[in-house]
Amino acid sequence: MGRPAVDPVPGAPAATLDLSDERALAVADYHAGIEVGLRYERGVELDSNADVRRRRLLRLLSRTDADRVVVLGDLVHRIAEPDGVEAEEVRDLLDALDQRGVPLTLATGNHDGGVADVFPDRIEMLPTEGARIGDVGLVHGHTWPGAEVLSASTLCMGHEHPSVRLTDEVGGSRVERAWLRGPLLREPFEDALGDEAAELAWQDPELVVFPAFNERSGGTWINVEGESFLAPFLPEALASGEAYLTDGTRLGPYREV
């Protein structure tokens, strides 16, 4: 048997991807410079974790021996052209990857509008509707995926930052980042694709929703009543998905956790 298309790294919000001729390390929602954003958005003062984030990613790269890094959207935090400490964090990450000869591919997210202008030759940018590499579709998830992405056998996305609230026997609770995985339903995409829907090479793909790499970015609590999803096609397109913790613990159907 060949390698799985998506293989989560145990204990980490990351996975390796089989992209035919390459093995990639994939993460979602890196949110470089988030501390500056939290200061202006919420008045929260936090020391920068830029070095910690970079070292975590580089350790995962060494651990997986991947040929490429794929970020499934929101490499940066501000919804504007990155500058200052945000741009510096991205530049330091790219410099570290260059030293290892590892390129970075970014599936453009809703926070990434200015990334291509600041780093025009250093990042491979995928369009907002995503792209297919080998038999894996890559998309951030804030817009409807294109027909090319939906023709893959596996679709990887970020954007949701899925999390679960777990309660113990004495009433204590904690929030954990989680994976969502399950069969993707075709029907929600037919209206969005319009004329392209008839030409869609549908393979009954598996959808894999990545947990956020940045632990400070919050998320969608998938098991809290009344919590709404961010992607325009969720939860309708993932009716029977299951949730997993980053340590591999299977929580069962995500609507019943």
Rank of each mutant, 00 (worst) to 15 (best):
Ala96Ser: 08
Ala96Val: 14
Leu97Tyr: 09
Leu97Pro: 12
Leu97Val: 05
Leu97His: 10
Leu97Ser: 05
Leu97Lys: 07
Asp98Glu: 15
Asp98Thr: 11
Gln99Phe: 00
Arg100Gly: 13
Arg100Cys: 02
Arg100Thr: 01
Gly101Ile: 02
Gly101Lys: 08
Leu104Tyr: 09
Thr105Ala: 07
Leu106Glu: 02
Leu106Lys: 01
Ala107Pro: 02
Ala107Phe: 15
Ala107Ser: 13
Ala107Gly: 10
Ala107Glu: 01
Thr108Asp: 10
Thr108His: 03
Thr108Ser: 10
Asn110Leu: 12
Asn110His: 02
Asn110Lys: 05
Asn110Cys: 05
His111Leu: 00
Gly113Gln: 13
Gly114Cys: 09
Val115Phe: 03
Val115Asp: 04
Val115Glu: 02
Val115Lys: 04
Ala116Pro: 11
Ala116Met: 08
Asp117Val: 11
Asp117Tyr: 12
Asp117Arg: 08
Asp117Leu: 12
Asp117Trp: 07
Val118Ala: 03
Val118Ser: 04
Pro120Asp: 03
Arg122Glu: 15
Arg122Trp: 14
Ile123His: 05
Ile123Met: 12
Glu124Cys: 01
Glu124Gly: 09
Glu124Thr: 12
Met125Trp: 06
Met125His: 09
Leu126Trp: 14
Leu126Gly: 07
Pro127Ile: 00
Thr128Val: 15
Thr128Glu: 15
Glu129Ser: 12
Glu129Leu: 03
Gly130Val: 13
Gly130Ala: 09
Ala131Arg: 11
Arg132Gln: 11
Arg132Cys: 15
Arg132Gly: 14
Gly134Phe: 12
Gly134Pro: 04
Asp135Val: 14
Asp135Lys: 07
Asp135Pro: 10
Val136Glu: 07
Val136Ser: 04
Gly137Ser: 03
Leu138Val: 13
Leu138His: 03
Leu138Tyr: 09
Val139Glu: 14
Val139Lys: 03
His140Glu: 15
Gly141Ala: 11
His142Ile: 01
His142Lys: 06
His142Phe: 10
Thr143His: 06
Thr143Leu: 09
Pro145Met: 04
Pro145Cys: 06
Gly146Pro: 08
Ser151Trp: 13
Ser151Lys: 05
Ser151Asn: 10
Ala152Trp: 02
Ser153Glu: 15
Ser153Asn: 04
Ser153Leu: 14
Thr154Ser: 07
Thr154Asn: 03
Leu155His: 01
Met157Glu: 10
Gly158Asp: 02
Gly158Pro: 03
Glu160Val: 11
Glu160Asn: 00
Glu160Ala: 02
His161Leu: 00
His161Gln: 00
His161Trp: 00
His161Ser: 01
Ser163Leu: 13
Ser163Met: 13
Ser163Tyr: 03
Val164Thr: 04
Val164Ala: 15
Arg165Cys: 09
Arg165His: 09
Leu166Asp: 00
Leu166Pro: 10
Leu166Arg: 06
Leu166His: 03
Thr167Leu: 04
Thr167Pro: 02
Asp168Val: 08
Asp168Arg: 03
Asp168Gln: 04
Asp168Ala: 06
Asp168Asn: 10
Glu169Thr: 04
Val170Phe: 09
Val170Asp: 04
Gly171Ser: 07
Gly171Arg: 09
Ser173Met: 07
Ser173Val: 11
Ser173Cys: 05
Arg174Gly: 14
Arg174Ser: 13
Arg174Met: 15
Val175Thr: 15
Arg177Pro: 08
Arg177Tyr: 09
Trp179Tyr: 03
Trp179Thr: 06
Trp179Ala: 02
Leu180Trp: 01
Leu180Met: 02
Arg181Pro: 10
Arg181Phe: 08
Gly182Ala: 06
Gly182Lys: 05
Gly182Cys: 05
